[in-house]
Design a protein around this nucleic acid. Structure first.
Lengths: 213, 213
DNA sequence: CGTCTATTTGAATGTACTCAAAAGCGGTGG
DNA sequence: CCACCGCTTTTGAGTACATTCAAATAGACG
């Protein structure tokens, strides 16, 4: 029994990085040495629901990869209303990049909507990484490219769709997320009030009820 | 007289690329040879107002740098209403990246709001460039990073501000653009109707009139 | 079980839109 | 250079989508 323990533990240690290495492996191929350089720079963190990773006004110190769970990035306006700019789940990166890169106070807060597990890399380490393993320039080029495309498409939807259509589009794009997070968060992400989202859902439900009968 | 012609012409040729090389020089330092590799891949084009660079449904073949003038990228919905996702001026890059990278039909059209001058690079050439001069991975990493940040901030404003505040914020961010393009385009960019923008401006103007008296 | 927060529901309100018509502006051709 | 045409902007009236406020209900957590 005892002898089995160590290999198991070792296996566990490797698994910690499996998801993030796989995420990166979709775009660049790393040698074992490069993987080590990279994982050595990572800081793991467990978050309980409602724990903060960043508060509006602080300087964002880390670019963060979500291993497990769900986080949101949002701003709070003068009236205290929260506006969710980004919802991230497993395999997503989340960061107030403006603050992270410019070392100025963050426009956004980041907190956990579920108990979560993340891997973080500091700005100094990331800069180091770019110079030591320049493939990472490529990786993040592709990452930000895709993020930019997605964000542009969201802007397009914001311009094009009304509340109901935005919600239906949300359901299509993130089918699992609807069950995982509160309507309040979804409403804030869509740019409508929770009250209005509730009305939208009532209409949709009664519609599909009619369809079923 | 004759002898002066060639140097002059040479000088002109170099100037064609001055702006784009300067744009790139903000983030990476190129050798003369690398500059040549790059500029050799560029295709220059002059656009008259209302000329198309890309039509919704075509495949976007180029990443485009704006040397002079003003272009917009927009989608057209089922009712024929246009929604402006991006307005680009001198020193900006414009492209339907999703279409460009995935070679699928574009969601957006791109056309000129002013007579314009652009430099374009094809996808094959850009891929070549990444492998031959890997500094460009870094350049575009930074470019897309900044574009993503800007787009996220726009999303935040769309969630936070009403029509009037969006317009005021637009005036602050792009003070010169207000004079250069039509209200129709501005309204479409802000996600409001031209009629409503006209009302907003009337209110703002009467306000500042009161202030002056 | 009790407390706290999220969701639902309804009524009144507000912000922004549609429709329609008039006025303004810019470009073109006679 | 003026007149006309087409497009943009303005203005007003009526309407629709979405919000606010308030109260009731439902759910989650200790």
């Amino acid at each position: 029994m005892k002898v089995n323990r160590r290999p198991l533990r070792k296996h566990y240690q490797r698994e910690r990085f499996d998801l993030i290495l796989h995420n990166i492996g979709r775009h660049i191929k790393l040698t074992v040495q490069e993987e080590k350089t990279f994982t050595g720079m990572l800081e793991a963190k467990n978050l309980k629901i409602r724990d903060f990773l960043l508060r509006q006004g602080e300087v964002c110190q880390f670019e963060t990869f979500i291993v497990k769970g769900c986080l949101r990035m949002y701003s709070t306006d003068e009236e205290g209303v929260e506006h969710v700019v980004l919802i991230g789940i497993e395999n997503w990166w989340i960061c107030d990049l403006g603050s992270f890169l410019g070392s100025h106070p963050a426009n956004y807060s980041i907190d956990a909507l579920e108990n979560s597990e993340v891997m973080m890399i500091s700005r100094e380490n990331l800069e180091q990484l770019y110079t030591r393993v320049s493939k990472f320039e490529r990786f993040f080029r592709i990452l930000f490219q895709n993020a930019y495309i997605a964000q542009q498409n969201r802007t397009n939807q914001d311009l094009t769709l009304n509340g109901k259509m935005k919600y239906l589009s949300f359901l299509q794009k993130y089918p699992t997320l609807d069950q995982r997070i509160s309507q309040r968060q979804i409403a804030s992400f869509l740019g409508i009030t929770p009250v209005f989202l509730s009305m939208i859902r009532r209409k949709i439900v009664s519609r599909s009820f009619v369809k079923l009968v």
